[in-house]
């Protein structure tokens, strides 16, 4: 599949010994880690043994739905936490319960989530785990069966979205088509490109390249850059259809 890999891919996903620095190389188990891509705006989560183990569970076709939801949610929380790190803060001093002064920071700027329906909605729980009362907008984009191009069906967004930072949610970024269309919708509502953070579990190198070069100021947080796309534009090895596995809408 790597035949179609774009030039921006520095390194395809490949086997590597992984583990913490205190372990000897031969003590580290081998596993396939994320590819690397040449964009400063693309942030891949650190390929720790724990993250790989979580991905292994959700990629496994024999994983039951309950486990799929639980373990994907853990990765989503990590994505949200990493995404939130890109939001601005301001110096802020407080007094501790023991009466000491603590030189800390305060969160700046309002945020909101926007999920690309339907799969993106499966990431809302993880977002709420970290940001309790966050507003969440929705955008419904579906692939037109005739043209195989994405088509906007519906959106509902906070009125003041132009003043907010947006965490855009979609677990799988295959061709980058839906995500691009969603970003266009947001920009049309006045959201600045640099204020959009796209949170995503697994991306194809092609889709990511397409998306990242189209929106050079937009930041992408992903857990894994996979091998590539198959002839049906599914990410491989991937994890199948995220929405189907999460919502249980697969044929048994």
């Amino acid at each position: 599949m790597s035949t179609t890999a774009p030039d921006t891919v520095v390194e395809g996903c490949a086997a590597a010994p992984i583990g913490p620095s205190y372990r000897e190389k031969d003590e580290k188990p081998q596993a396939t880690v994320s590819g690397k891509i040449k964009f400063d705006t693309v942030h891949v989560l650190p390929q720790t043994p724990q993250l790989i183990a979580l991905l292994t569970i959700i990629r496994d076709k024999n994983t039951q739905r309950g486990d799929f939801i639980f373990y994907s949610n853990r990765i989503i929380r990590l994505l949200v936490e990493e995404g939130l790190n890109h939001l601005p803060v301001k110096e802020h001093e407080v007094t501790t319960p023991l009466g000491r002064t603590y030189a800390g920071v305060r969160f700046e700027g309002k945020i909101c989530g926007v999920s690309i329906m339907r799969a993106g909605e499966s990431m809302e729980q993880g977002l709420r785990d970290c940001c309790r009362s966050v507003r969440i907008g929705k955008i419904l984009i579906q692939r037109d069966e005739d043209t195989s191009q994405p088509k906007l069906f519906y959106h509902k967004l906070p009125n003041d979205i132009a003043d907010r930072w947006v965490l855009l949610l979609d677990p799988m970024n295959a061709t980058g088509g839906s995500a691009s269309m969603a970003v266009e919708v947001l920009k049309g509502k006045g959201v600045a490109e640099e204020r959009i953070l796209f949170l995503n579990l697994i991306a194809s190198p092609e889709g990511l390249e397409h998306f990242a070069s189209k929106f050079p100021k937009l930041r992408v947080i992903t857990a894994f850059i996979d091998e590539g796309l198959d002839d049906k534009n599914y990410i491989v090895p991937g994890l199948g259809d995220f929405g189907d596995r999460h919502f249980g809408t697969l044929n048994d």
Binding site: A15, I18, P29, Q30, A31, T32, P49, I52, A53, L55, T56, I57, R59, D60, K61, N62, D230, Y234, V236, P237, G238, L239, G240, D241, R245
Partner: peptide, 14 residues
């Protein structure tokens, strides 16, 4: 493991 697309993935487990 095998993914739903029957592709192998070499991962890890605890």
């Amino acid at each position: 493991v095998l993914t739903p697309l029957d592709r192998p993935y070499m991962g890890l487990r605890c």
